[in-house]
Amino acid sequence: MLSYIIRRIIQAIPTLFGVTLVTFIVFNVVGGDPVYQMVGKGAGQKEIDALRRELGLDRPLYQQYFFYLKQITTFDFGRSYATKQKISQMIKEGMGPSLSLAVPAFFFGSILGIIISLLVALYRGKLFDRLTVVLSVAGMSVSVLAYIIAGQYYLAYMSGLFPISGWEPGLRGVPFLVLPGLIWVIVSLGSDVRFFRTVMLDEINQDYVRTAYAKGLGKYRVLFRHVLKNAMIPIITRLVIAIPFLYTGSLLLENFFSIPGLGSMSINAINSSDFPVIKAITFIGALLYVGGNIVTDICYALADPRVRLK
């Protein structure tokens, strides 16, 4: 197992190397010149050259690339063009708000999705099943923007159940996270339930389920002991793949609810051509994604004895 993990990590290095190359080419080679945007109209050539030198953009490309690689390996991504803050510091600060919204919403949504789909599989073809399918499709079809606007207007502005937007550190921030969290859960629930339901129905028609019933087991025992463990493989795949995206939070939710997380930070960076910030976020995203894949493989082996990690 351990040697498998080590091998997978070594295998991941070329992938990450490729990511650095692509992000570098996209931003430093074909991405246009950030200096013009920074200095604004009417700046003199002298000013431009000075800024270029300061940012290291006057050096040959290969030197710039090695400098970028050095930044990545030391997790010191330099400073933001726009705010002059250290990027590592910005990410550290943005991660808290992002994760405090994303993690609870993700776990609550996933567990709720799994439980609903198990029940749906149990009552297949009955009213509960049909109603859930209709609601899931409806939930998937409505844009997140509609939920945000409706939620902010009716639940926050009209009834005053939640603050409209904002964020505070620590426990005082909890009330601000309830409404965006709720919207997150509703939006993800639709497609999750549809997917998990298919997985469960696939399993529930297997022969081993019939065997389990023939032993005299009750339906809940059959469902939780026998079916769920078999259904875990596709479920794990779907969930672990989603985890790396949690760190950027939700671009839209953070923006609309003024949560100073990495999602808002990304949007601001994109708007102001703040290349180092975008590069850092892209790279960390890729890193987490590759890591997530390795975790998925390990989870497979834990969930299914037929998977042998060699």
Binding site: D207, Y208, H226, K229, N230, P305, R306
Partner: peptide, 10 residues
Amino acid sequence: DPMTSLNPVL
């Protein structure tokens, strides 16, 4: 079918 009648993960 003893191949499919047993639960593969138990």
